[in-house]
Design a protein around this nucleic acid. Sequence first.
DNA 1: TATTTTCGTGTAATCGATTACATAATTATT
DNA 2: AATAATTATGTAATCGATTACACGAAAATA
Lengths: 342, 342
Amino acid sequence: MSEKVTIYDIAEKLNITAATVSRALNNNPKIKESTRELVIKTAASMNYKQNKLALALKSGRSNNIGVIVPRIDSNFFASVIRGIEEELHPNGYQVIICQTHESKKRENENLYTLIDAQVDGILMSLTDVTSENDGAFQYVLQKNVPLVFFDRSKHIEGVSSVTINDFRGGYLTTKHLINEGCRHIAHFSGDQSLEIFKNRFLGYKQALLDHGIDFKEEYVIYTKSAVEAGKEAVDKLLQLETPPDAIFSASDFAALGAIQELKERNISIPKEFCVAGFSNEPFTKFMELSITSVDQSPLEMGKMAARVFLEQVDKTETIKIEKKVVLAPELHIRKSSSRSTF
Amino acid sequence: MSEKVTIYDIAEKLNITAATVSRALNNNPKIKESTRELVIKTAASMNYKQNKLALALKSGRSNNIGVIVPRIDSNFFASVIRGIEEELHPNGYQVIICQTHESKKRENENLYTLIDAQVDGILMSLTDVTSENDGAFQYVLQKNVPLVFFDRSKHIEGVSSVTINDFRGGYLTTKHLINEGCRHIAHFSGDQSLEIFKNRFLGYKQALLDHGIDFKEEYVIYTKSAVEAGKEAVDKLLQLETPPDAIFSASDFAALGAIQELKERNISIPKEFCVAGFSNEPFTKFMELSITSVDQSPLEMGKMAARVFLEQVDKTETIKIEKKVVLAPELHIRKSSSRSTF
DNA sequence: TATTTTCGTGTAATCGATTACATAATTATT
DNA sequence: AATAATTATGTAATCGATTACACGAAAATA
């Protein structure tokens, strides 16, 4: 370790006090111009670097923020993180990454660890496991650390959130499928204790209703967000008395599985069967049979979450802010559901 | 901010010293068992949490490590980071993420910022911009902070690295294309000042040589890692007097572009033309015409980089360790190059 | 019983920077 | 020139935890 240079070293060299050095370096107006210049020059020549840990201890602010996601290796979450990092970096914050792997236990652990590490804020997307226990969240709030949910959110007093309008996403997609002539539209959903899945489902339902199509319980299948799950779900659907002629999947991966399964059964897409997904994962665009999907503008979502945090971080402690930002979803219509256009 | 509980508060309550409290909580054997229990119980009841910043300042270790990548929203880097996080989390380290966006300037900024933030180590993948200036790296080394390169590496005294055998990856892929009957194999490369691209190229060249096929300079095209770039490159290649009958692309995205362009020209894949990529991005597997690609086991790479860091972090300061780990690449043969199998 | 060990705790310095308050040095005012 | 006002700097506490050293009390030994 190269000998660390502190303000005391600079002070000693110049026969002044550390306090003066500190003030000079912080542009305190009470310092004589000549002294300031001398200190700054000497600091530079001695290769002085401010010890951020000491500063953090003194000020109580670490300039770190924590980000908790189910996993980082999904395009959606990685893009959100990118947005967060890009917005926060210029403000001098470092981004600490934690993963939950959809485990509530790890979610709680991460929350406690981050608070212990004195982060200045936490931005997170919930696990898909339901839980009534808000203990860890209350702990965060009680420490007065700004907490912002993005995408996967739930209502907790004092917690802000940035989401997209999932209802609208579901509605638009379903409406589009109806416009393409589909009349028996199935839906792949996720755990509806998560608002995102609930709302996509409700949008789907409302669209059916508004267009005079009966909602059928049996058309709703709960799948994991995985290719295999999509295949199995199609298998189930095709055994119904009236099999559907379209699927609105709340997951791109399940949508892909569905398409693979349909192809294997020689069902022509989009002619006989339309499919649409959700998230606009890169592969949906790349496929030869490109997949219609709802874009969640993850980059924008990350930046927005970061901005909400920044707004809250310096506010007086007494005012509890609870901001709900809802971004507009964007339906990308592609081959898998385009009977007319392509 | 809920009043912070410190060891002094506990000490006061029990009419003992903070020193005793500290010792009790740290399982110092000099503490009487009854005292220890009392302290621990009281600490729990008062909801005491150790202040990590104070600890970090005292010990000089932040328990943070920095990870610098070109961008986080690529499956490869995200997966590496996942590996790093999973390996380091159980060891009590937090992972701080930085992006360079392929800018040398930002790379240097990030290095300085991380050092200033007292990270205990830095794991990184280089930008694709060449630079002779190692100043920032020297700064890191001089501070005796372990530095580990992964994937995109270059030789610097005292820096460890974890890479895959890119030469072998290039060799295996090219050999495979030859086995499928291709005799005019083109290569999409990246900036060869980066060892990864240099080595993939060399592997390609060697495979040609070993199988009695002439190497042609005109078959090597330098492309960005992007779909459009692949299309343009194919356009160029097909204008040659003897157009190639296969492409080994050092990028999956460029390979995808190539495939799209070839299809548009009604060139049949793999019958008339074979294509193989590199990185095993998720979409290569998902396509109907799935794309042959080299897997770099990013998860494993991340874990390995983390382990190399862990080995170095506690070593006596005088021994400079320089470990080079080379992982084996794995060729995933898929439809885009399988004349025989599928 | 007197003396040496051992054990358990307290005292105070330390990590590096910031800052309220005090004081010295300078300049302005009468 | 004497006093007031201003400016620049020093002193020392603080953030919260750790730890070398010191010391009193209890236990072991002579």
